[in-house]
Structure formats: structure tokens, C-alpha cells
Nucleic acid binder design. Structure first.
Lengths: 286, 286
DNA sequence: ATAATAGTGTCTATCAGACACTATCTT
DNA sequence: AAGATAGTGTCTGATAGACACTATTAT
């Protein structure tokens, strides 16, 4: 056993290796059939001293920050998202769609750990990443130490069609892992509905699946008829429908900004925690 | 932003909150159609001083330990498993089946954090849990600070049919989360084969699914014929079979310890990273 | 009317579950 | 021979994908 971990030393905080543990929020949103991610542009710190070492200046990065004492990782990332981007997430876990997607701890992942230009003690930063689903069209407000905060198309990030091409640190990898997690979970559980408002159309749900599958599989679009049939067939453990149509009245319909028939609004049966029919990208028939 | 996180303080390790970060290994093994988990019984520390505060004495616990400096969480858990239970896992990531299943960080989860009887500074311990699949029948050897290390039936753990009834700390929750993770992943990816040796029978694979589904769904057994048909149909991206039969010769068959016909051995196509046919528990027909 | 999307229904290939039947080996 | 498991095949109901067709609304 590690000599440094003897019980008698446990009260000496310097006798043990203690990393800095940060949270990273992969905040997703679907708008106009496109998947967006909330990013901040890294700028100078709040002190304004430009001589300070601050890696990845002007790079886009995932919002997040260090966990404080007597705080959980979930609480930390929610707090940081409020501070950095003005995103208000309910702390109530039942309402907030927040999922752990990866823990990153290789010693070389944080520039601070190995950058030779700075003086001082060596540091190792680990990160726990969360995928977070937002429904409301929240307008991000950048904090003092980030120049900008906004939703950017995930396709632009993956195609390196952003300033500096790549994200800061290992955030590209974190994003990819979060995407994989979401696609897996959306196949098995009613996660896609978390992207939608209280009242939603089947087209809203279809847009969610389509925006993910366009990125991770070679899907151009989902056939409307089959998708509707499948979603309407979904039931929960007790055999109750997963989504329920509102009364077929004009006020319960929503028109698209373009044209076409307005779609009927549905509400969700929130008791269901799995899908009775798996949702995977369409397999073309031979 | 948190005042304590000002850049100018970054070189002072005490100016920031730094938790202890531990790893927990949820090491699974399937034997005789039963799922087992590797546990250690908590005993006195290596110093032998019984007056030291050591919570959950005589409780069964997940093996694992603190991450050291310049070490990743994956490296740490593999090292600790070697130290605590004599389990040899290849560091080579491509060969070792190791999957992150949860990060646990609520401030009250570690008894050390709030136990009033001990003096000294307050501490917060976070844990990153890994599900680890073992194939070889390894004989655990307990280290000095654990009284015992052995594989225990998961069903016994879930049914509180173990000494002290529950596991130490929040390890019951960690086990449950790891089980859920495994069932999800085994539905979508060829994870079950990692439990098997290089050469295996279809019955071996069936035993893996059966041992999990018995615990998480109300499955008594999997119908043999349908399972074989489905596994044999599986193909990879290029259309190559997922498993390949060895030449039908007596030396390529393996008899069960009981009786019945010896089963043909198969080898696995290791290129496949997903299943062409989803593996979910059988739905009884109405 | 036209265009565009919503929504329903039908046809068919494929898949899943039930189960019969044969093969092979142990006792 | 009896018993047990391996392995294959067949039948049938359910599901998935292709697609036709109607409905509804904006322009």
C-alpha cells in the first residue's frame, strides 16, 4: 500500500496527493433542426492582469469550474453555469437533465500541469463532465473572465469551423464522449423529450433525434410517417401511452415559421423512464 | 466567480479546495451462470494500531484507493486492484475492459468528512467508479490492511445476504449504478464477450447475459435456441460475422462439468464495436 | 391552386419468440 | 437406454422501413 496513505497522516492535507477537480458542462440545445452547444470564449481573468499565465486565450471552451468544499460536482457545474453564462438550472435533480458523461484525469491533460513557463508547484486537474439538456431559449451572458458565451452549432465544432479550429484543453474529446453518451441513452430512454417544452409537437421530438443522428451516423433525415407511428406506439411499464395528444382544437396546435399544417401539441407521461421501442437510426432496406 | 480561484493564487495549493479523489473498482466475473463481484473485507490498517479511526470495520467494500500524483484514475484503480487483491490487469487499454460508471462527490458520502470523533481538518473524498470485467479465474489475495478479498455473488450483495448486510460507504449505490451501466452497454455493444476466454462456447455468452438479466429484470433463463440464432446472426460494419466457429473437431469442443453434448468453441471478431442486433431481455409473447 | 408539413394507413421484409426436432456426449 | 445440453429449423406474430394518401394551413 502507498506509504503516503498511512492513516496517521490523514489529517495533514499536504501529506496526500490532492488534485484540483473541475466540472465541465456540455450544455445541449436543439433549435431549427440543429444541435447547439454552449461555449465560452476564454479571455483574461477578472483581475485584468494580462501578464498572468492563462492558457488557450481566445479559444472556445466548455463552461465549468472548480468544485468547492462541501459541494457536489452537480451543484458545482450548475453554479458555474449560472456564473459564467447566466444559465438557470433548477437544483432539483428531478427536473434538471444532467448526466455524467466522463471523468478525465490523465496528468498531461491540463496545460497548467506541464507548462514550463510558469513557476510554482506542479498541479494536476481532473474534470468530471456533464451533459446538460436545456429547453428554454436562454440568452447567455458572459462573465468577467470570459469574452463571450454563446450557443454554437455542434457541427461547426466537429468540423473545426470555429475560431482557433479546436476547443481548449481536451474539450473536443469531452464533447465527442458526451455525444456518444446521448445517442446511446436516447435509444433506450425518453431523454429526447427533455429538449422539448412542456407542450411539444412530434416534429419537435423528431428534430432532436435528427440533430444527433446527423452528427453521429450518416443520416440525412428521418422519415416522418414511420417516426410518428413509432413514437405514438411508445408506452410505459403500465401500458399507458408515453405522450398524450391535447384536444384537437386550433389553440392546441402550433404553426411552423415557414408553412405547412400546424402540428398538434402533446404532453409527456413523466412516469416512464425507458422506451418500450428502441430508437435507433433507420436501417436502409436492401 | 469564486474569489478563491483568482489566478494569482493558483500556485498556492492551500488557497483552493482540493478533495481527495479515490477510485472504486466494480470487478465482475461470471461463473456457473452467476454474476460475482470482487470485494474486500475492511480491517485494521497496516500499522496495526487499533485505536486509529477506521470506518466500516468488518464491512465488505469495493477495492480501490486514492489516485496518486502524475497518475490517471484508470492507472490508479488498476494499481490498487493489484495491491489489494492481486488482480493483474493489463495496463494496455485495448485489452482491459474498464469502463467509468459513476462519479460520486456529495460531501456527506465519506464518513471521514463528518465524523465528529476524529480531530483534524475536514476532508471531502470523491470517487470515480469503474466497472471491470475479468475472464481469468484469478484467486484474490488480501493485502495487509484488508482481512479478506474474494468474489461474492452479486445476488447475495443485493439481497443483503452478507456480513453487516450492506457494503461500506455508498458502495451499494455504486454497484447498482455499475449494474445498470453494464446492462445498457451489453444491449448495444459486444461487452459480454469480454467475460469469456479467447475460445468460448455460445453457452458461455448466454450465461453472461443470463447472470445480469436475472438481477436486473425478472428473467429466469434465456431460451437456448433463439439465443444461439441471434448471436450467430451478429455481424460487424463490414458484414463479417461477430463470432466464428472453430473447425468441427472433437478437440475444438468443450464438455460441461455435468453432462450433455460438448459445445463447439468460437473465436471473436475483435473489430466489431457494436452489435448489429440489440440484446435485450426476452419479451414474453401475449 | 400550390407548396409544405402533419398525420394515418397499408404493404412487405425482417426480426423475435415459441417450440419441435436432431445431434452428441455422459452416466 | 436415459438424461442433458448443443445446435438447427420452422412457424407465427410483431416490428421496421417504404411509401401512398389524406388533412390542414400559409402563401
Amino acid at each position: 500500500m502507498n506509504k503516503n496513505l498511512k492513516t496517521k497522516n490523514l489529517n495533514n492535507p499536504l501529506a496526500y496527493f490532492r488534485p484540483s477537480v473541475a466540472t465541465d458542462g456540455v450544455v445541449f440545445k436543439v433549435q431549427n433542426n440543429e444541435l447547439y452547444i454552449l461555449l465560452i470564449k476564454r479571455g483574461i481573468s477578472e483581475t485584468g492582469k494580462t501578464k498572468e499565465f492563462r492558457p488557450y486565450m481566445d479559444y472556445w471552451a466548455l463552461p465549468g469550474g472548480f468544485i468547492r468544499g462541501k459541494e457536489s460536482a452537480e451543484e458545482a457545474v450548475i453554479r458555474e453555469l449560472k456564473e459564467e453564462t447566466n444559465l438557470n438550472l433548477k437544483i432539483n435533480k428531478n427536473k434538471t437533465s444532467i448526466y455524467q458523461t466522463g471523468f478525465y484525469s490523465t496528468p498531461d491533460r491540463d496545460t497548467w500541469s506541464f507548462d514550463g513557463t510558469k513557476k510554482g508547484t506542479w498541479r494536476q486537474t481532473m474534470s468530471i463532465a456533464f451533459a446538460i439538456i436545456t429547453q428554454t431559449s436562454h440568452t447567455p451572458i458572459a462573465s468577467t473572465d470570459s469574452k463571450e458565451a454563446k450557443y454554437i452549432k455542434v457541427s461547426d465544432v466537429l468540423n473545426k469551423n470555429i475560431e482557433k479550429k479546436v476547443l481548449a484543453f481536451d474539450h473536443n474529446k469531452i464533447l465527442e464522449d458526451a455525444l456518444d453518451y446521448m445517442v446511446d441513452q436516447m435509444a433506450l430512454r425518453p431523454l429526447a423529450f427533455d429538449f422539448c417544452d412542456e407542450k411539444f409537437t412530434i416534429g419537435d421530438v423528431r428534430a432532436v433525434y435528427e440533430s444527433f443522428w446527423k452528427l453521429t451516423h450518416n443520416i440525412e433525415s428521418i422519415e416522418l410517417g414511420n417516426f410518428q407511428n413509432k413514437i405514438l406506439k411508445q408506452v410505459d411499464q403500465k401500458g399507458n401511452r408515453l405522450i398524450n395528444p391535447m384536444p384537437n382544437k386550433p389553440e392546441n396546435k402550433r404553426a411552423q415559421e415557414g408553412r405547412g399544417a400546424p402540428a398538434l401539441l402533446y404532453t409527456r407521461n413523466k412516469e416512464a423512464d425507458y422506451l418500450s421501442y428502441i430508437m435507433l437510426p433507420t436501417q436502409k432496406r436492401l
